[in-house]
Structure formats: structure tokens, C-alpha cells
């Protein structure tokens, strides 16, 4: 366990050094990501100020959904950013080195490119979120807080499972970028409460590819809208999904034929 932490720290350090070397880009990326958040927030505010709510939720709740989306999205990106660079590793054959080392290759793949600037964004998000929540009528009690933390953990596990699946597909077909992009597009659909979408779409996003669940469940927990059945279901869903993803990963490894030059 300690070894993994140390390796992760070193990888992150390298990644950070690279960012220093490309300061200009890194700053622009930071600005870009912040802009993306601010723009959509402005849009959302403009929208719900006029409409008073959306799909049965109040103004405040809609914003909370959006803030939760960002929290989950940025945190998962923080931990799994390596997936975005994976294709290159497979094609170049570097992946073979990962397999040959005494370390879980999944860890190396996903945790190898941590972007510390995401911590900046996360901190800013936390500050704003706290301010907004303080202003709102939301008063979480200890029970809600615990539920929230559990659901965040569940989200994390689902995200982990999805990323493992993406990586597994990448190993079999070397097609990573498309799966990841589709994943991002689907998650961005959850910037607003899922009730916005028609039934078939909602079912698809909740049960088939539990992205919607992953994003909105923590928000629901915070807002006290989580029902016991949903809660239990989410635990079940997360564990099944994770289990499936690991099986897929093992299958992918067995099918792997390394890249020739």
C-alpha cells in the first residue's frame, strides 16, 4: 500500500514538473477549465432565475446538482487522468513495460498523470460550493453528511469501474479516445437533473451505463432525497459493476498481443 502511495507521489511530481515546463499551457488550461465551469453556471443561473426551477427541482437544488457534477467529475479526472494518455502507451509498446513491472498495471495506467492544478480547481469549487450551500436553505444533518460521503465513495467506485472498462477496451482494440470522449459526453448530460430527460434516456443513463447515477446520487443524498431502496441499490450496482469491470480487464489481458514496432 505504502509503495503505491510513494510511486503515485513520484509520478505526480514528474507530471507537475512537466507542467512547470509548459507553464503557459498549464495556466491556459486552468483558465479554460474555470471558464467552462463559470460559463455553465452563468447559464444555469440565468435559466433557473427565470424559470424558478427545473424538472420538479427548485432553483437551489438544480445548482447543487451542477456543483456535485463538477465535484465528481473533477475528482475522478484527478485520479484517473492517465486514461487519456493510454492509447499512446499501447501503440508505442510502453504498456508492455507496465505489464512487466511488479505493480498493478491498472494503477500505473490511471494514476500516472495526475494534474495538480485540478486541486486548485477543486479547492475553488469547494469554496464556492460551501458559500452557496451556506446561502441556501440546505441544512444537512449528520445522517445526511454520512450518506453523502458513502454515495461519493460509491460514485468513485462506479467511475473506477467505467475507467477500467475503457482501459480494457483499449487493450483489446487500441481504441481509447473515443470511449473516453463518449463517457465525458454522457457524464456532461448529468449536469442537470436526470429527470429532464425522457424515460428511455433516463433508464439508459441510470441502469445500463450508470453514469447518471454516479453523478446525481451524491447530490440527492445531500438534498435528503435519497430513499433507502435507492441507497441499497446503488451499493449493489457499484459492486456488480466493479466486479464486471475487473473480469473484463482480466479477459482483456488474456487477449493482449503486444504491439510490434
Amino acid at each position: 500500500m505504502k509503495k503505491y502511495f510513494k510511486v503515485w507521489l513520484q509520478l505526480a511530481h514528474i507530471s507537475f514538473a512537466e507542467q512547470l515546463a509548459t507553464r503557459f499551457s498549464s495556466v491556459l488550461f486552468l483558465i479554460g477549465k474555470t471558464a467552462r465551469f463559470v460559463f455553465f453556471l452563468v447559464f444555469l443561473f440565468s435559466l433557473v432565475n427565470r424559470t424558478g426551477g427545473l424538472a420538479g427541482y427548485t432553483k437551489e437544488q438544480v445548482i447543487i446538482f451542477f456543483l456535485m457534477y463538477n465535484l465528481v467529475d473533477i475528482s475522478t479526472q484527478f485520479f484517473f487522468r492517465g486514461v487519456y494518455f493510454f492509447r499512446q502507451k499501447v501503440v508505442s509498446g510502453e504498456f508492455d513495460f507496465y505489464l512487466a513491472k511488479p505493480m498493478n498495471p491498472l494503477f500505473r495506467i490511471m494514476a500516472g498523470y495526475t494534474d495538480f492544478l485540478d486541486l486548485v480547481t477543486l479547492a475553488a469549487l469547494a469554496v464556492y460550493g460551501a458559500w452557496f450551500a451556506g446561502q441556501s436553505s440546505i441544512r444537512p444533518d449528520p445522517m445526511t453528511a454520512i450518506l453523502l460521503l458513502i454515495m461519493l465513495a460509491v460514485s468513485f467506485l462506479i467511475a473506477l469501474a467505467i475507467h477500467i472498462i475503457v482501459v480494457a477496451i483499449g487493450v483489446i482494440t487500441t481504441e481509447v479516445d473515443h470511449s473516453i470522449m463518449v463517457y465525458r459526453d454522457l457524464t456532461s448530460m448529468a449536469r442537470v437533473p436526470l429527470e429532464v430527460y425522457s424515460q428511455p434516456v433516463r433508464i439508459f443513463l441510470t441502469y445500463l451505463i450508470p453514469i447518471g447515477f454516479m453523478i446525481t446520487a451524491p447530490a440527492k443524498a445531500l438534498l435528503g432525497l435519497l430513499t433507502p431502496p435507492t441507497f441499497l441499490f446503488s451499493l449493489l450496482l457499484a459492486s456488480c459493476f466493479l466486479f464486471l469491470s475487473l473480469r473484463l480487464w482480466r479477459y482483456a489481458l488474456s487477449q493482449y498481443s503486444s504491439a510490434s514496432s
Binding site: S25, S26, L28, F29, K33
Partner: peptide, 8 residues
């Protein structure tokens, strides 16, 4: 990076 900003 600049492209990303433009895109956003």
C-alpha cells in the same frame, strides 16, 4: 491549450 480555451 489556447485551442482548448477557444473551444470552451
Amino acid at each position: 491549450a489556447p485551442r482548448f480555451l477557444l473551444f470552451v
